[in-house]
Design a protein around this nucleic acid. Structure first.
Length: 484
RNA sequence: GGCGCCGUAGCCAAGUGGUAAGGCAGAGGUCUGCAAAACCUCCACCCCGAGUUCGAAUCUCGGCGGCGCCUCCA
């Protein structure tokens, strides 16, 4: 089966075909950096990071751009409130954003351009659009004239006339039509501004994405992504101004991820109760739990966030972590260090049962990146491996078991999961190991003498410290528990 | 009002024409001094009503319920 991708433009799943053979250009709208990242900001990055991982696995050379919008009305207002500059605020918030991406193992971003670094490009597009008659200058502003583009509305599937009728009427407007949108805004004194043919000003909201995608990926590229809430007006406007400027199709595929809700309400900066800052979340949960939550259903569906849900996911992660521990016991190898194929092959040298679920995983991914279905196959594989491991000893023939584990590595790499061992709730160094050996040895003597009350107290008190003891036939295992 | 999306077990969720993946929770079992982990088993007439079909969770129509966008938002 070949990859199919849902395209907002056509509202159907289409076979995936690139502009240039073997190459993919992908642009995803990043944040306007005026306040720290909440979990909603991570949905797009995690999903498109996974999209890039899968495309790379299929053999494509992917170039992925995520922009930073670092000049905007809201930045100006927030900087004034904080008594700082727009520049300083943008830098601070951008740093927080980058930390969150790194924590969630979003590693695939190739370019992260800032709007303020592309003012010249933005002005050039303004000039081009005016020259071609799609835009007009008015009182220091520049507006896109939506009546000049007959395809306006094709992405959000809206009737241009209704858009006109529904648009907000601003009393002091310098617009010709109510639906026109600003490409360039004259700045007031004290606001960040750049010289332009229309006087000092700054970019409108949508134009920076056109400028940066055009500059880095070219006129026609493959995938444009973002949250569902950006379809209108942001992407519609970006699309119309880009195609009007270049005269060629803009992005081939428009992919929109569903939005995160919290107890049924959309997470949004205008609804402060819903905000869950990433920094707070990362302090409490393993990053893999957050990543798995975001990938556990299809990307176009809404995801409801709740602490209960994240706790459940974290618990299910334990199944994998225990399997990795068992793997290390049997083979001496660390799952993290396993080398797995990074390119798709049809055949795989693993037990048939594992290979079957691997096929299921890849079929799910081929079907518009159905990570929810893919995750289900992962649990099947880990169960098979655990069942196998139960009958094995370090002296057994471990080839099939190891081959199955390599498949698990191959597939979890595609989802960007388990890239590094989970953060532990307590320190775990050589001395700890020696101390634990000592405790376990003493406790074994207690158990031998049937002093179970004392033996259980040792175990319980260790549990309280985040250390779990498991008595098995080959002796007692111990592990430091990860964060939730 | 316009344009869409969704309704699958207690909760989350895949499947979208051939008789219901998976996770969490729960029940029973194997193992264990007990526990934990792991494994095995059990747990759904797919919101309602019509229709199309040999056959529908899946397609069509009509309800009911929830959500998003149309205004800043990832």
């Amino acid at each position: 089966m070949a990859l199919r991708v849902y395209n907002t433009l056509s509202r159907t799943k289409e076979p995936f075909q690139t502009v240039a053979p073997g190459e993919v250009g992908m642009y995803v709208c990043g944040p306007t950096v005026y306040s720290k990242s909440h979990i909603g900001h991570m949905v797009g990055p995690v999903i498109f990071d996974t999209v890039k991982r899968y495309l790379t696995y299929l053999g494509y050379k992917v170039s992925w751009v995520v922009n930073i919008t670092d000049v905007d009305d809201k930045l100006i207002v927030q900087a004034q409130k904080d008594g700082t500059t727009v520049k300083a605020l943008a830098e601070q918030v951008t740093a927080d954003y980058l930390d969150c991406l790194a924590a969630l193992n979003v590693t695939g971003i190739d370019h992260m351009p800032r709007a303020t670094e592309h003012i010249g490009d933005i002005i050039a597009i303004n000039e081009g659009l005016i020259e071609k008659g799609f835009a007009y200058a008015s009182g220091g502003d520049v507006y896109f004239d939506v009546s000049k583009a007959d395809s306006y509305g094709k992405l959000s599937h809206r009737d241009p006339e209704e858009l006109q009728a529904g648009a907000r009427i601003e009393p002091s407007s310098l617009k010709r039509n109510p639906g026109d949108f600003a490409l360039w805004k004259a700045s007031k004194p004290g606001e960040p501004s750049w010289e332009s043919p229309w006087g000092p000003g700054r970019p409108g909201w949508h134009i920076e994405c056109s400028a940066m995608s055009l500059k880095i990926l070219g006129k026609h590229f493959d995938i444009h992504g973002g949250g569902l809430d950006l379809v209108f007006p942001h992407h519609e406007n970006e699309l119309v101004q880009s195609e009007s400027f270049t005269g060629v199709p803009f992005a081939s595929y428009w992919m929109h991820n569903g939005l995160l809700t919290r107890e049924g309400r959309k997470i949004s900066k205008s609804d402060p109760d819903t905000i869950v800052l990433m920094g707070d979340l990362l302090a409490e949960y393993q990053p893999d739990a957050i990543r798995l939550l975001l990938l556990s259903s299809h990307y176009r569906r809404p995801i409801d966030y709740g602490p209960t849900r994240l706790g459940e996911i974290a618990r299910s992660l334990g199944t994998f972590q225990h399997a990795f521990d068992r793997f290390k016991e049997l083979t001496g190898e660390s799952f993290d260090a396993l080398e797995a194929p990074s390119r798709r092959a049809d055949e795989v040298s693993a037990p048939a049962e594992v290979a079957e679920h691997r096929r299921g995983f890849l079929e799910a991914m081929d079907d518009d990146f159905n990570t929810g279905g893919a995750v289900g196959e992962l649990f099947e594989i880990v169960r098979i491996l655990n069942r196998t491991a139960a009958g094995l000893a370090p002296t057994s023939d471990l080839a099939d078991y190891r081959a199955g584990m390599v498949v698990l590595k191959e597939l979890t790499n595609i989802l960007g999961l388990f890239a590094k061992p989970p953060e532990k709730a307590a320190a775990n160094d050589a001395l700890t190991g020696d101390l634990m050996a000592l405790l376990i040895d003493l406790r074994a003597r207690l158990r031998k003498e049937k002093q179970y009350a004392l033996a259980d107290e040792v175990r319980n008190r260790l549990t309280a410290l985040g250390v779990t003891l498991e008595d098995g036939p080959e002796g007692t295992r111990w592990r430091v528990e990860p964060k939730r």
